[in-house]
Design a protein around this nucleic acid. Sequence first.
DNA 1: GTGCTTGCAAAGACTTTGCAAACTT
DNA 2: AAGTTTGCAAAGTCTTTGCAAGCAC
Lengths: 170, 170
Amino acid sequence: MTENSRHLQRFQDFLTKKSLRLTSPRRAILEAVHGHESHYTAEELLSLARSIDDSVSRATVYRTLPILQECDIVREIDVGKDFKYYATNRSEDNFQAQVVCVDCDNIFEIDAPFMDWYAKTAAERLGLEVDSQRIQVNAHCTRLRTGQTCEHKAAKTSESLLHSTISTHN
Amino acid sequence: MTENSRHLQRFQDFLTKKSLRLTSPRRAILEAVHGHESHYTAEELLSLARSIDDSVSRATVYRTLPILQECDIVREIDVGKDFKYYATNRSEDNFQAQVVCVDCDNIFEIDAPFMDWYAKTAAERLGLEVDSQRIQVNAHCTRLRTGQTCEHKAAKTSESLLHSTISTHN
DNA sequence: GTGCTTGCAAAGACTTTGCAAACTT
DNA sequence: AAGTTTGCAAAGTCTTTGCAAGCAC
């Protein structure tokens, strides 16, 4: 069973449970969500969804994203810009930190397994219960800073590093 | 030497260095920055600044905040809402994580000393150089969830916890 | 059929910016 | 005097919302 069909299944179940309907725009948006490799904006999702069903409107994308987040199919990533990024939840995902290159806007994700423990401890000290958590590191391209600005290409070649795991426990 | 005067000194030096001017609105805003206890919005800063010099305009607040951030007098805290919070840098501050109560919007800060190490390690793996970092934990009020919603009052009484330190190294 | 959905365009919320007048050095 | 800064209001940017027509079930 592919991830796509697993997500479709989950989406349908969720919609049914809430007496919502599986419409053609929603289907196109779900497909678009799988068409994106990494992080995308609402606008990018709209473009791709429109290439699948050109009647999809911006409003529907914005109305569907919260549903996809509730289904745990998509997650929102706010890196402090004036718009948000979204990413599709792949099955093997652990909690991850975002490393954002401020020169080229690339977003890398790196496992940060200690975060679950930290968040829980921090919240408990305040008598709270963890809802969600987030780590973000903003960084510059050391090597490329001197030459032309940090390039997206450079970032792409680092993709093998994306699944590195960093833990504070050694 | 108080923190206020240290900040004023730093502000003046910075302005001079950049051939900028110490004007009355800027002075009022700097004062307002010290009048706030914890986290404040641009709008709240504007109100307080206006109570000191009622001619201060919203535009000037927005234009002055970036300068204060460059001087390291104020820091920006983006908790993913559609507006930003600001906090005055007090001398004893270490790197801190934000714990945001999603019920009452209170923001607590807790030391997270391991973050420097983590950010550096994560960035290095990608060939980047750390610029800034951020940890945020969103949480609910466990105890108060059942009764009336989590109250701001309740948060205030936890203030003694604000300076707790949590480290992953035990 | 019932009532959830959609697209469109207008509205919203916060922040930024153009401009002429006012002010700091 | 020279050049920065200000307040005002308009512009901007992303996101949300009202509404009548259109669909899914």
